[in-house]
């Protein structure tokens, strides 16, 4: 089909009418743009800037994650440790004095806190997952051992696949709830 032989309508050649058309189109496109661009930004997750060596505390001493993230096996939030939690150990005679000095210097950073990346309408309970036998590393990976913590990507897809029993088959988890209101509110 070729339409090139068709003449353009005379109204597009200029004049007042043309400006009226432009005005209407601009108004409409502004409304449209408002509507389309109001979307919330996609969550971004960068590396954490907290100067803390997970490798020293975890593997070499044998501390469980829940020793500092006290909620990791008990409550919905895993929690970040407070200064007092650190000082439980660091006030005692220890092998590594340097760490203690470093802690005293860098007080402004503590107690450490960071932003939650869980949307408001999602329920995630760390305790119930730990209780079901899910290891921290199953979701958080082992990256934090090399201090590359904070780079995990969580989405509903990975949640629901495990809940349906499609992933982690070798771990033999019990089947989990898949109805919407189990995790959404």
């Amino acid at each position: 089909m070729r339409f090139s032989g068709i003449k353009m309508p005379g109204l597009l050649k200029g004049g007042l009418f043309c400006w009226v058309v432009v005005l209407f189109v601009v108004v409409f496109s502004m409304f449209l743009a408002d509507f389309l661009l109001e979307e919330p930004a996609v969550p971004e997750r960068g590396m954490s800037s907290i100067p803390f060596d997970h490798a020293i505390h975890g593997d070499s001493i044998g501390l469980d994650c829940s020793a500092c993230h006290t909620g990791a096996r008990a409550s919905a939030n895993a929690y970040m440790p407070s200064m007092a939690d650190c000082m439980d150990c660091h006030r005692l005679p220890m092998n590594d004095k340097l760490a203690e000095e470093e802690m005293q210097v860098d007080l402004s950073e503590k107690p450490w806190s960071h932003k939650r990346h869980l949307p408001d309408h999602v329920v995630f309970h760390h305790g119930v997952h730990a209780a079901a036998g899910v290891a921290c590393a199953d979701c958080h990976g082992t990256g934090f051992r090399q201090n590359r913590y904070g780079g995990e990507k969580f989405d509903m897809q990975s949640c629901i696949r495990c809940h349906r029993g499609e992933t982690f088959k070798e771990r033999g988890f019990k089947p989990a709830a898949t109805y919407c209101a189990a995790c959404h509110r």
């Binding site: 008990a74 409550s75 919905a76 329920v123 309970h125 305790g127 209780a131 209101a181």
Partner: peptide, 13 residues
Amino acid sequence: QNDRLKFKTQLSV
């Protein structure tokens, strides 16, 4: 929801 999750956590402990 909160009560259910808390219950399940405590139960397993």
